[in-house]
Design a protein around this nucleic acid. Structure first.
Lengths: 192, 192
DNA sequence: ATAACTCGTTCACTTAAGTTAAGAAATACT
DNA sequence: AGTATTTCTTAACTTAAGTGAACGAGTTAT
């Protein structure tokens, strides 16, 4: 499990054994049961999550309805929004499956950043990469229809469609569960 | 114009006069005429833009149609996607108005990052902030209808609706120009 | 000044998503 | 096992967005 982490880090910077031990000594690994709510609406957590195994999701409750906006699976990093001024747009983070996560908080990061410049370099590279990826995802979302989004997801993250409830997937695609069912039936019809 | 830049930077790190001069000596300021295309589909520019005055937009051409996905105005930073493997999703950057931009490239950034740790800290903080903001924007987009998106935009960036052509705004909202016209008519009707 | 183009709006029609409701299938509960 | 709950699908109807076409206003070009 630790190897997964260090392999990931090695894509950005190379660590010495001492640095690896420094990270391990922070004791960041955490096992989380399916259904656990990591962050409730209104709470102000500064924790960041890195998924080693499993799946977590971000959702809002708007007019009493759950709206899922993101899924994070193996080797995905979730950095919180840290909503600045607007209090209304609060969200939840919950565990879709039993998962193994790496949990860090801001204080820890600030300390690591000042202690090891390497760490700051990695954080910069990682956020730049996440920003770029998210820009592409956002652009794709804007420029395609729900049906195209579904087909796109089928290509890029086929596992998600299996491991995640349909109604959560639906709002992730920006539609209602009923529309997703219909949309899938439509696609099957076209194929035949 | 330089003050705008240094005021912006001062939100993240404090610079000495020497550091300020180092930045100025890079000669990054650039005046750009309305309609200028800064990046053409297929080109591989590593330039980043920071808008001091004016407005630039990002768009794709899909099936012969322009799809605008982003507008950057005063004090917005545009970092390129640097599409990794997928060549098909290429985009354009063009000038909506006569603008004054700050243009930097990757080489420059790499040099500055290694020379001044402060600069790297600023870049990290900036990307983290941009990432968080974009996550919120993306979530809002996913969880709202075209009409809600328009009303939302009216609140948050009322200037955009004035300074940008309607058909560009439409695709930015994820709809066709005709739908935007209709939607606006609908809203006016409701008010009366 | 006229012609060509772009831009925004409107209309009629088509298509797809939202809504409400009902029922089947799978899961969790005790 | 049997009940309750959640999840998924289907259907009928409503609402809104997509499409194709037409029109006037404003802009650009010649």
């Amino acid at each position: 499990m630790q190897d997964l982490l260090f392999d990931f880090i090695s894509k950005y910077v190379s660590l010495t054994e001492e640095e690896k031990n420094a990270i391990l000594s922070l004791d960041l690994f955490r096992s989380v049961k399916k259904g656990t709510i990591l962050l409730k609406e209104g709470q102000k957590t500064e924790d960041s999550y890195f998924v080693l195994k499993g799946c977590i999701r971000v959702y809002y409750i708007i007019d009493g309805e759950e709206k899922t906006t993101a899924f994070y699976t193996e080797l995905d990093a979730l950095t919180p929004h840290r909503v600045l001024n607007n209090a209304s747009s609060d969200y939840f983070i919950s565990c879709v499956e039993d998962s193994i996560l790496l949990v860090s908080n801001t204080d820890m990061e600030v300390e690591m950043n000042s202690k090891f410049p390497k760490f700051e370099t990695m954080c910069r590279m990682l956020s730049e990469e996440l920003l770029a990826k998210q820009q592409i995802d956002f652009d794709e979302f804007k420029t395609s229809s729900p049906e195209e989004r579904y087909l796109n997801l089928l290509q890029k993250r086929p596992d998600l469609i299996q491991r995640v409830p349909q109604h959560q997937l639906a709002s992730y695609l920006g539609i209602k569960p009923q529309s997703l069912s219909r949309l899938r039936a439509r696609i099957l019809e076209k194929k035949s």
